[in-house]
Structure formats: C-alpha cells, structure tokens
Design a protein around this nucleic acid. Structure first.
Lengths: 168, 168
DNA sequence: CGAAAATACTTGTTGAAACAACTGTCGTCA
DNA sequence: TGACGACAGTTGTTTCAACAAGTATTTTCG
C-alpha cells in the first residue's frame, strides 16, 4: 500500500480515513470529479455546462411538449436553486422558449427549440464517446453492480418526488 | 424542501439512458449530489466549503510541517485551479499561515494554525455523523465493494501524481 | 555570464452557485 | 367577496469556480 512517494519532504501522508463511510465518500467525490472532467470537455466545446445540457436533455425527452420550470428543476440530476437564470441563459441563446398560459399565469412553460434539439444532436456522439472513455474499461457486470450500489447508497436520501430516477 | 408535491402531472418520464455507461455516470452524479448535501450542512455551520475543509484536513495530516501550495493543490480530492484565493480566505480567517523561505522564494509553504486544528476538532464528530447518515444504511461488505468499484472506475483517469489516493 | 525557458504563484475578469427577500397569481374558506 | 396563505418564479447580493494573462524567481545552456 501507500506508494512511498519519492517526494523529498512529505512523508507520503498516509491517506488515513476516519471511517469506512468517509473512505467511500471521498472515493465517490474523487471519482465523480475525475470522470466529470471528461464529459465537461465535450460540453465546453459548445459552451454548455453539464447542468444546462441536462436541462436540455430533459426538455428534449418530452418534446414537442413543454414543461413547467419547477418540474424541470425537480428532475435535474443535481438540484439547481436558480432555475430562472439557468433558463435565461439558454433562452438568450435561442435553445428554448418560455411562455405563460392564461389558464395559470403562475407557471412558466419551457419548451426546447429546433436549435436546441439540433445542438443536442450535434454533440450526441461526442457525449456517448466521453461516456465510453469514462467507463469503457469496465466490464458490463461491474458497471451494473456499480450503478446498483450507487442507487442503493442514495436511496434513503431521495425525496418522494424524483423517485422516477431511482427505480428503473 | 420537504416532500410536498402531490404533483399532478409527472408521468414519471421514464428515464431512458443512451447507454449503460451513461446510466452509470448519471447515477454517480446524482448520488454524489445527494450525499454531498448532507456533508455540506455540517460545513455550512462553520462557513467552510467541502474543498476548504479538505485542504485543512490535508494540512493537519502533515502538521506540524508545512506544505507547498502546489503539492497541496495536487492532493485535494477535486482539482482546484485557484489555490491562491482558496488559501487567501482561510488565511484571512487565521486558519492557516503562508511563508516564503529564502532557499526558494518561488514556493509558498502553507501551515495549519492552532485555530485551524481547533476548528477541525470542533466539527470532527459532526462530520463523522454525516458520513454515517450518508452510508450508514449499507453493509460493510457493500461499502467495500462500492469503494472498490469507484477506484476501479477512475483508475485510468488518475494522473501520475495523486496515486497516493488510489491504492490504499 | 546572460538570454531563454521553466517554475510557482498572483491577478483580472467573467460566469455560474447559493441563499434570501420580493412580486405576481391562484385557491380557499370564513 | 375578499383576506390570507400557498404557489411559481424573479431579483439582489455575495461567494465561489474557471480560464487567461501576468509577475517573480530559479534553472538551463549556449
């Protein structure tokens, strides 16, 4: 263990975990960080954040229908406390449109545009390739196991809403 | 937050994945997000970010020695392109000190202060409890398996440096 | 030696999170 | 019907992250 490190001073500060649970969390964090950066390269090429891409992806999945802002926010992979401005930026680029309907002027319906869908199509292959780069070295069995353990890990932390994601 | 929402509409938009690899990534992302928020509550109570806590944790691990800025940056769980200002904030709060030594005036040595260590001690238990809350519901075996699969997943994406974290 | 490259940070600027406070709209029930 | 609370977004402010460009300080090497 512990890769002695040819580093002069640092005595290879043994990564000592306070608990197994902490070890899992730090592993989760680091793996997420490393793997995310691969995907981010693809998004950066078209000036999107992962979160923006995700919003568009969800909008595309209900196309040609629209989606209330709050519902969209609730379905994003990671929570976003600032839907308004996230949508502002995408709307300004013409990737989606917002409209209020007379029947309930409180809700803002969001719909992806043709440009939006076209942008998604344009990067679709590159995104898939980045996923391959992320996990292509693992066996199908290991991947299923990992997905399963991840679901299991967050299961008690899901709120009643977004269960749609958990099952499946 | 809470779980209001007897959401009328959501037909549980079947989460269709383009590939197994994508499914794993989205699961990783969501699990990270959910689980991170639990830990963040603890840090928020003392106005620290997870990244700041991590830097302090590393500095404590080499105490009473100091660490060059760049080495510290390289050992953080998630990469930080802006070490300077991260350290600025912690230094301003008296949690660490920086010093340049005559032998090489380029490198800035960073050392945790007594206040810094005291702050870490102060929240140590709460941090451990949050880890329990995160993963306490999983068996030891499942946790080991998860940690192992996570290491396996990022292994090809680690750069030569931070291997110290991988093995172990 | 002395220019040029490499090293280790700093600074500037821009964009995006986070939290709180606020506005407009709708349902409800006395 | 009309006040009140719930709902759905918006705006303001502060803080943080990311990328680029700049400043010192060694090291290298012709």
């Amino acid at each position: 263990m512990a890769k002695p490190s040819t580093n002069s001073a640092p005595p290879a500060a043994k990564q000592s975990f306070d608990s197994l649970e902490q070890e899992v969390f730090l592993n989760l964090w680091r793996t997420y960080d490393r793997v995310k950066s691969l995907e981010d390269e693809v998004f950066a090429a078209v000036s999107l954040s992962a979160q923006q891409y995700n919003a568009l992806r969800l909008l595309k999945s209900v196309y040609p229908n629209a989606m209330p802002t709050l519902v969209l926010g609730g379905r994003l992979i990671s929570r976003a406390p600032d839907m308004t401005r996230l949508l502002d930026r995408l709307e300004k680029r013409g990737l989606l449109v917002r409209e209020r309907r007379a029947e309930n002027r409180r809700v803002v319906e969001v719909r992806i545009t043709d440009e939006g869908r076209s942008l998604l199509n344009q990067i679709h292959d590159a995104v898939q390739q980045s996923h391959q780069k992320q996990f292509g070295h693992m066996s199908k069995k290991a991947l299923c196991q990992l997905a399963d353990l991840l679901r299991q890990a967050r299961q008690p932390h899901e709120d009643a809403d977004n269960l749609s994601f958990v099952d499946q």
